[in-house]
């Protein structure tokens, strides 16, 4: 435990705060658009979703660590280091999300609990993608491919996801509640997958 406490500062310094910050600012800009007029207000749920996507793209870079190969030998296991990164980023993400929600005019704000579930699922999915990148490849910065994958997934889901299992539903839609049950499943799946991917493999793949 004291070892972990000593790690806080170095890990904090290697976190890609600039990238996450830029993504956060972009997300807040998108949510601020809801205050620009009546037609923008009607789109508030979608603007909020675009903001979530922007922030999740930023979080995909969370596990980028240029020093990955030199820190592989430290005694603290990888799940702890990843958990530490996530724990450091979580308060920032929570603060960002609060600010984003407050930027949306109260009258047109989607149900807070449900939209928070969507945001949580998207962010966890992004970090899980990054953890999978770390787990299954040797690259030090899996962020960019993971961000690309996240965007591609978002586009493909928007275009081709069958309506029976709709995820992106408008607020007044009767499928809203069912859709958020599905979002819960997505979140749970992402958390489990992320936990599995965070474990360091016992053996490194040997390449010649």
């Amino acid at each position: 435990m004291p070892l972990t406490r000593q790690l806080v500062l170095p890990v904090h310094r290697t976190l890609p705060w600039g990238v996450v910050g830029m993504a956060g600012v972009a997300g807040l800009l998108l949510t601020a658009l809801t205050r620009t007029g009546e037609s923008a207000e009607r789109l508030s749920a979608y603007l909020l979703r675009a903001a979530i996507l922007a922030f999740a793209v930023g979080l995909a870079f969370l596990l980028d660590d240029p020093a990955r190969h030199t820190t592989a030998a430290v005694p603290t296991p990888r799940p702890v280091r990843i958990a530490l990164r996530v724990a450091l980023a979580a308060p920032a993400a929570a603060a960002w999300w609060t600010a984003a929600l407050l930027l949306v005019p109260p009258g047109v704000r989607p149900p807070v609990g449900d939209i928070t579930l969507e945001a949580g699922a998207a962010c966890v999915l992004a970090v899980t993608g990054a953890a999978a990148g770390v787990r299954f490849t040797e690259v030090a910065r899996p962020g960019l491919p993971v961000a690309g994958g996240l965007l591609t997934t978002a586009v493909l889901v928007m275009l081709f996801w069958p309506g029976r299992w709709a995820l992106f539903v408008p607020v007044e839609d009767e499928r809203w509640a069912a859709a958020h049950d599905r979002w819960g499943v997505v979140l749970a799946g992402a958390v489990i997958l992320g936990a599995v991917c965070a474990v360091e493999p016992l053996r490194r793949r040997v390449r010649f």
């Binding site: 990238v19 830029m22 675009a50 965007l151």
Partner: peptide
């Protein structure tokens, strides 16, 4: 010169 700029631009473009 940041790698995040293009993905964010894509999010705006998608919207």
């Amino acid at each position: 010169r940041s790698v995040i700029a293009a993905p964010l631009l894509v999010v705006f473009g998608l919207f």
